[in-house]
Structure formats: C-alpha cells, structure tokens
Design a binder for these strands. Structure first.
Lengths: 114, 114
DNA sequence: TGCCATACCTCGCGTTACGATGTATTACGC
DNA sequence: GCGTAATACATCGTAACGCGAGGTATGGCA
C-alpha cells in the first residue's frame, strides 16, 4: 500500500487499537498487523505524539517481571476518531472524483460510512 | 480535512484532473477545489514529481498571448490511478477496523469501491 | 494608474515514517 | 549452559512531502 495513503490512517488506527481496552506497544503492532503494518520506531513516535496531544494517557505496569506501558484513550482521542469519520465522507467524494464515478446515483447505494 | 489524510490523495487527484483531457496548472487547482484544495506551490511540486516519474508529459502552448503548460497523462499515470483503486479496498478494511464495523455482513452491502 | 485575475516558479520550514541501532528480560531448543 | 528468538522498550538521522512566503509577467477592467 502507498506510504502516503497510510499517513493519515496510522494515528487513528493506533487510537482504534486502544479504544476497546488499554493496550501496550507490542500488542498494538500485532493487533494492527492484519490491517496496516508499522514499524516499532513509527509506533513509539506516534504514541509519544498522541500522549503530548492528550489523546491518550500512559500507565506503567509490571507483567511477568517485564515492564509494560499501557496506553489508555482519552476523550480527545475518541474525538479524533470521530473527526476521522467525518473526514471519511470527504474521502469518498474524492474517491469518486478520481474514479469518475457518477455521484448522482450514489444515494441509492448503502453508504460505506456511518 | 486532516493534512496527513490528504497526502495520499493529492497526487492521484492531480492525475485524475488531467485524465479526461489535457489541462494546465491553474485550471487543475480550480477543478480540484470542490473536492480537495491545494496551494500552487504544492501543485507545481507534484506536477514536477509526476513528470519525473513519467506519469505525465508536458507541452507548452500559447493561449491569448500568455504561455500555458499543458499536462497529459501517460500510461504509467493511468496505472497509478488503478493502483489507487486497489489500495482503496485496503482503505475500506482499515476504515472498518477504526470504526469497529462488523466485517461479516459487509458483503451484503453494495461496496463503495469498484 | 492601480488592482485583480491569470499563469508560472523557487526556497525554506516543519511534520512525519522508517531503517538502523541499542538495551534488557523471558522462553525454548540443543 | 548457551545461543536464538520473542517480548518490550527507546533514540537518532534521513528523506519525502505540503505549504507559506515570495518572485516574475501579462491581460483586463475601473
């Protein structure tokens, strides 16, 4: 998949990976892998960025002698996901522009969005 | 709209803007405006990039005393658009991951893609 | 004459993904 | 016991990219 296309998705995917329950770096990568792959260096950069933006909070806990940093999504983080959903509508419109799909009959379709 | 999300779309949108008929910088911006906005500096960077990648060819022509550079999409350019369409399938899968949409019933939907 | 629209272009900056690299512990095969 | 893989974290430098700021030039209109 095109790297540039990934850029807008990575951040929100990380948030989605911790939305249901708190998670930690290594697990986030594994959970995301079937959908979108990212390197560890990228993830930790993103996690730090999201923490600075108050979209997640961090809690360090010990698990079988090894320390783990659990990430918890905040209200701002959930808001970010909602914003992504709005952006998706725009994305669809752009997709149609690129594929020259006729927009007039689109309303007859079951939308791909919310 | 999120800047990062735009990144993967800009290039392919420019190609789409010249796919039906040859066009020039100023017109491309205007045609794209209803769907996605980009500055002149961004466009000319993209046009140069696409030219280097042989996804479009350039022809200079005079129009009412003013010179215009007309851009023409190449076979590689059209291939790029096709690749974008394939990527879209992946995008949809990622979208569902983020929105926690159940994928099991998706096949019952009329897809948003090709 | 001044100003806006048209039409092109360049430079520098900030953001971002990622490979390379490093540290440390547990688990498992040989 | 020892090497290797998996787990788990982190940093640094690089390259790509969008964009604001700025530049050049012509045509049309008030």
């Amino acid at each position: 998949m095109d790297i540039q296309l990934k850029r807008g998705l990575l951040e929100v995917c990380v948030l989605a990976a911790i939305a249901d329950e708190d998670s930690y770096g290594y697990k986030i990568i594994k959970d995301m892998k079937p959908y979108i792959e990212l390197s560890e260096s990228t993830l930790y950069t993103i996690l730090k960025r999201l923490e600075t933006a108050d979209m997640l909070s961090v809690r360090t806990a010990e698990h079988e002698g090894r320390l783990r940093k659990y990430y918890h999504i905040t209200r701002a983080g959930r808001k970010r996901i909602e914003e992504f959903k709005s952006d998706w509508t725009e994305m669809l419109s752009i997709y149609r522009f690129v594929t020259k799909e006729d927009e007039s009959h689109v309303k007859d379709n079951i939308s791909c969005g919310p």
